[in-house]
């Protein structure tokens, strides 16, 4: 057997890696003889590793070089960090009423001002972030898992099961969110964030189910799936070991974006009084509160009550979307090229 590729030496472990070749071009090493060896030496001299790269390490690299995604990530770490450590970050308790300081604008003592009951707005925003974050993350995770299972089963088995599941999905998609929530809150009583989250999950799984079904439909026909089947793999193994990893990219992106959407919808619902009920502070509740007291006792506008929670919502959703975009680009395996 004559294999032309070297089986020993520095080229061997990475003969399919793009690096030696690129390095040769970038470094302009154009040696007349043994140029490959020269390029490899040069690569090593430059301290570049010749280790084989997995798809994930490429994805990670692309992700960390994606500028907007980094902005989104840093932003989210700061905002969600404040939410997670709300007890430490906030100088007051969110329910602490101080009737001597009602509806005051931003000061040193109260960075974001105070509300109609003299509660510190900064504290309330921080706790609001926490609530909104809980809703967003919970909805994203649970609806992804539910959507994943339904979509995978529908796409993999096809036929009447697919038909049934997809018609159910269509049905859920046609339900009017507001009407159902109105009924649900009426039936279930006062909403806390978990109750609202569960109702949101009921609406959010559909998108992911459809995406996953689509991917499963196309991937189940792939030859590697048939090859795995021919080597004895059962349905569950084919679905979750062989097909699922191929769908992770779109799923992660979708789940990330779902965090943003869920926060937005929760804020809208709370603003309309159908979502989370006070005293639990959520960003939507805060904006709603601002509506109740549009003017200070002296007749000025209470802009700080709307602007700060509003801006926080915008910032969170923007960061989440940046992050989602970055993940989408990073997880697209057809994209080998790095870009900013």
């Amino acid at each position: 057997m004559t294999d032309l590729r070297p089986t020993q030496g520095p080229m061997a472990p990475s003969d399919d890696s793009v690096f030696p070749a690129t390095q040769a071009i970038e470094g302009e090493v154009i040696a007349p003889e043994g140029s490959i060896v020269a390029a490899v030496d040069d690569t090593q001299a430059a301290g570049l590793e010749l280790k084989a790269r997995s798809q994930w390490s490429y994805a990670r690299m692309r992700f960390f070089r994606h500028r907007l995604a980094m902005v989104g990530l840093v932003g989210l770490v700061i905002i969600f960090g404040a939410g997670i450590f709300a007890g430490v970050v906030s100088p007051y308790s969110y329910a602490e009423i101080d009737l001597t300081h009602i509806l005051q604008g931003p000061t040193h003592a109260h960075w974001f001002g105070t509300d109609a009951l003299g509660r510190d707005q900064f504290t309330r925003v921080v706790w609001g972030i926490r609530t909104s974050m809980e809703v967003g993350v919970f909805v994203a995770i649970v609806s992804t898992v539910v959507g994943l299972i339904i979509g995978a089963v529908a796409g993999y088995y096809g036929g009447w099961l697919d038909n049934l599941l997809m018609r159910v999905t269509d049905l859920v998609l046609t339900l009017p969110l507001l009407a159902v929530l109105l009924t649900a809150t009426a039936l279930l009583g006062q909403g806390n964030q978990w109750r609202v989250s569960l109702i949101l999950v009921f609406f959010f799984w559909t998108g992911i189910a459809r995406v996953v079904r689509g991917i499963f439909l196309s991937l189940r026909e792939k030859e590697y799936v048939e090859a795995a089947k021919a080597s004895g793999a059962g349905d569950a193994r084919l679905m979750f070991r062989h097909i699922l990893p191929n769908t992770l990219g779109p799923i992660v992106v979708n789940a990330t974006l779902a965090v943003g959407t869920a926060i937005l919808v929760e804020a809208a619902l709370s603003f309309l009084n159908f979502g989370i009920k006070p005293p639990t502070p959520s960003l939507g509740v805060l904006v709603n509160d601002a509506q109740q007291s549009p003017q200070t006792p002296t007749g000025g506008t209470t802009w700080w009550l709307t602007i700060f929670p509003g801006l926080t919502i915008v910032a969170i959703v923007l960061c989440v979307n940046f992050l989602g975009d970055g993940l989408r680009d990073a997880l697209d395996p057809t994209q080998r090229r790095m870009r900013a």
């Binding site: 030859e223 590697y224 021919a230 990893p245």
Partner: peptide, 12 residues
């Protein structure tokens, strides 16, 4: 199988 390019799962 016939086509080794497509008979192996790309992500595993």
């Amino acid at each position: 199988f016939q086509d080794p390019m497509t008979s192996l799962n790309p992500v595993l």
